[in-house]
Write a protein that binds this DNA or RNA. Structure first.
Lengths: 346, 346
DNA sequence: TTGAAAGCGTTACCAT
DNA sequence: ATGGTAACGCTTTCAA
């Protein structure tokens, strides 16, 4: 109330030891739940802890501790504001909580340099492990961390330049399923709208598109393929151009949630929402409430995050078995937009 | 390749000093950019750092450092997966990056106990500051942190039990504006669907609803008011009940994005999407793409996060002026659902 | 400009 | 079962 700056120094183990009339080591034992302490001393220490409102300094603790554990894990994703990343993050947080750990997260924005900087920073801040959806073409720079004993688990995108656990989806198969679905409805002119082709996810989805088009005996005219669409605006414009071109597609396959919503906007603007079919890779909130509902190949971000975090903590806790790769299924969710038939032949 | 566990210990200042043939103190000076080091030694040290791939241990550094800065800030929000929280988080991250800091974030899930635990954990992990949207009725427990010198900034919800900076919206005025808008379109039976009434945001919005209904000379029959709806399912059911009741409302005011989407689901299911008006508090992605577009009182989550983080870093950097309260405007975004007129009187 | 030594708060080692 | 002392990796006096 009256004191403006009564900055009191926090109590230390020494203060607690003094008040309880024991050695610092005994205080340390009590804090860490070591059984070999008499009831008598234990309660004296606990009382002193309560009276001084003592809280152990984790930095000092992990500095000295043999295993060096910090109770923190790092998470690097594309953009924490994107629903895919946000959902995955939350799932990781929940697993981390069970392991009494906190999550230090960062957004990469598809910037390899930022990735290296953030990974460096996170290492300097001390993390027991790292979960990453890399933006860089090569994560060899992480080998040093791995050698230093920090486990790394990849999500969404596979490791390159090192071997590590990975939680992925089958992008090729998922994209193929999307195209097959559209072909079965009768479409022959199916366009591809995708993210940066340099991304392994996008290139996998494009390959799935190409392969399935081939299997269906359908041509892939270059004018029906648009790469490197990374935000809603770019996707909207590309879809608009495609749909107003000389020989427009009767169906769209979009490789990512932002691209999908861009396509929806273009279809809306042109009044084609119920005339041109659309299947997107990656689900997003409210996709079922749009008119028509958007048919998607769903990625279960929560399950990916949970799986990755579970894997990571197994490694943190000393699992040294061979690297594992877990593939999360991508179900086709039928909602209407993917079931629009092509216009009658003429 | 061949070594399975070549865990090499990371290099320390001592190793660098030895290799460069200088004292550890000089290494420390170079690391921290202290100018009083000769070019000669500086370059020798930098070479050694590069050769040993040395990276300073931040935990040890902040342990000894006078200001005790950790380069980490803490962020506690309702649910990191919610678009409001996720957007705010991302904005905080961007400001933090400019200040060379990382963000340690956690979800509270409206659980006061979890809030206290997380705040404790974050303090133990060492954070230079805290941004929080509290779930508890009283944040007096934070006084200790504040006294210990850790600045706290509140977002979305005001502090109780302590004085601190706050970045808020005017919930009363925003809700009143929503109701006024519906009344101006001609509605008289306007229902309120809201989150836990114990939340200051929800209670403020309810008050705005009540007051504006009063100003408009409209009654507030208890059967048109539903509180404590915290997820989509509860909101959907409540809206469904209201709309299928004996004297259904002609318009809905919903207090939060999850409640709003629940209401949209109920309206859809009943085929009333174009017959019953709806205005929601809090914007959400794709609200403009629904049919009809959802009219909302928008909260600019990104701006709230940016403002809060900017404020926090001013405090972290030594600003000791009186606590400030910043109010972020909440524009009415007209999209269609709020402009549906009531059915003709009969 | 440079360095030796002390110390940050904790845990590990080795006695007792 | 308990405690003294060294040590973690770094920065801060304080001297030189």
């Amino acid at each position: 109330m009256s004191d403006p700056e009564p900055i009191r120094k926090p109590a230390t183990v020494r203060d607690v030891a003094a008040l309880a009339g024991v050695s610092v080591k005994t205080v340390s034992r009590v804090i860490n739940g070591v059984p070999s302490v008499s009831e008598e001393l234990r309660s004296r220490v606990n009382q002193a802890i309560a009276r001084l409102d003592f809280r152990p300094n984790l930095a000092a603790s992990s500095l000295r501790r043999a295993d060096g554990r910090t109770g923190r894990i790092a998470l690097l994703l594309e953009d924490l504001a994107n629903p895919f990343s946000a959902t995955l993050h939350r799932a990781v947080e929940d697993v981390a909580r069970r392991h009494r750990s906190l999550v230090l997260a960062g957004s990469l924005d598809e910037d390899p340099q930022r990735e290296v900087e953030l990974a460096r920073a996170l290492a300097a801040h001390g993390a027991d492990g790292l979960i990453i959806a890399p933006a860089s073409p090569d994560q060899g720079y992480l080998n040093r961390e791995v050698r230093a004993g920090t486990p790394v688990v990849f999500v969404d995108r596979p490791p390159r330049g090192l071997t590590a656990d990975a939680v992925l989806v089958d992008n090729v198969a998922g994209a193929a399923a999307a195209v097959r679905h559209l072909a079965e409805v009768g479409h022959r002119r199916i366009a591809y709208l995708g993210d940066y082709l340099s991304l392994p996810t996008a290139s996998g989805r494009f390959r799935g598109y190409q392969e399935e088009m081939g299997r269906q005996g359908l041509p892939v005219p270059p004018e029906l393929v648009r790469h490197d669409l990374h935000d809603v605006t770019a996707a909207t414009e590309a879809a608009h151009e495609l749909l107003t071109g000389p020989l427009p597609p009767t169906a769209l396959f979009t490789s990512q949630n932002l691209v999908t919503t861009g396509a929806v906007r273009a279809l809306r603007r042109l009044g084609l929402g119920h005339r041109v079919a659309l299947v997107g890779f990656d689900d997003f909130p409210l996709a079922d409430l749009l008119e028509p509902g958007v048919t998607v190949i769903a990625q279960d971000a929560a399950r990916m995050g949970e799986t990755a975090a579970t894997l990571l903590f197994e490694r943190v806790n000393g699992d040294h078995s061979d690297p594992r790769e877990v593939v999360i299924p991508t179900p086709l969710l039928i909602r209407g937009s993917g079931e629009i038939p092509p216009p009658a032949e003429r």
